[in-house]
Amino acid sequence: MEKIIIGKIVNAVGLKGEVKVYCYTDRKERFEELERVYVEDTPYPIANVRYQANVAILRLEGIDDRNQAEAQKGKNVSILESDLERLPEDTYYVRDLLGIAVADEEGRVLGSLSDVVQSSAQDLYEIKLESGKKILLPAVREFVLSVDMENRTMNVKLPEGLLDL
């Protein structure tokens, strides 16, 4: 089963083996709902979770002192694909959107979705045009008309003049 990276260990905390995890998820509280995480390929049951600003502090079973915690610094934290939350309708994981074909209102293929830039106001879809040029499109209903995950296509309405920039 595929593993999904949800964070990175950025430091050790204290003397008892806790690790500070920079979260890639939009809900750091997700760690409270998990029984275990993987650090690289090694599974670790979660013994305790707490928070410090925008990071999670995890106490992982089997990492019992600061030296062991420091040895994990820089490593990815993952979960199994089966541990992913079910999303509401018309909501997608970024990993599922990447590479999807993007077409205009008339069905002409413009290019593909190459990245999702997550910001505080709204997400921006980075679309790599067939010409190689990249444009950013706000991920809002006004511009994103439909997403067909089965056929891996997205239909969009581009703001006037966007392609001329």
Rank of each mutant, 00 (worst) to 15 (best):
E106Q: 13
Q68Y: 06
V37N: 00
V144I: 15
C23D: 10
A71D: 12
E70W: 07
P43D: 03
Y22R: 10
A47K: 10
E35G: 13
L87P: 06
L163E: 07
V55N: 06
K28T: 09
L136C: 09
E61I: 04
R95G: 03
R50W: 04
Q68C: 00
I127M: 03
D26S: 12
S120W: 12
Y24R: 10
E106M: 10
D41R: 11
K128P: 03
L80G: 12
V21M: 02
Y51H: 05
Y51V: 04
E150S: 13
I127Y: 09
I127G: 06
G74F: 04
E106L: 13
E32C: 04
A103S: 14
Q68K: 14
E150G: 07
E81H: 11
V102W: 02
R108N: 15
R95N: 06
R59H: 06
A56Q: 01
K128N: 12
K75Y: 09
V13G: 00
L110A: 04
E126A: 13
D64A: 09
L98T: 02
D115G: 06
D123W: 11
F31T: 00
S131M: 11
A121K: 15
L110E: 02
E18L: 06
I46S: 02
V55I: 10
S82M: 11
R152C: 09
R27Q: 12
Y38V: 02
V77N: 02
M1I: 11
Q68G: 05
V55Y: 07
V77C: 03
Q118C: 12
G62I: 04
A12Q: 08
V147S: 06
L34Q: 01
A12I: 01
D90V: 00
L34C: 05
E29S: 14
V94W: 01
E126I: 14
G99M: 06
L87K: 10
I135W: 06
C23A: 13
E33I: 00
V39R: 02
D148C: 03
L15P: 05
D65Q: 07
D26E: 14
L15S: 14
E40Q: 13
D26M: 11
T153Y: 02
K73F: 07
Q72P: 04
V94D: 04
P159L: 04
V39M: 05
R108M: 13
P159K: 07
R86H: 10
V109T: 15
L163V: 08
L80S: 14
T42H: 08
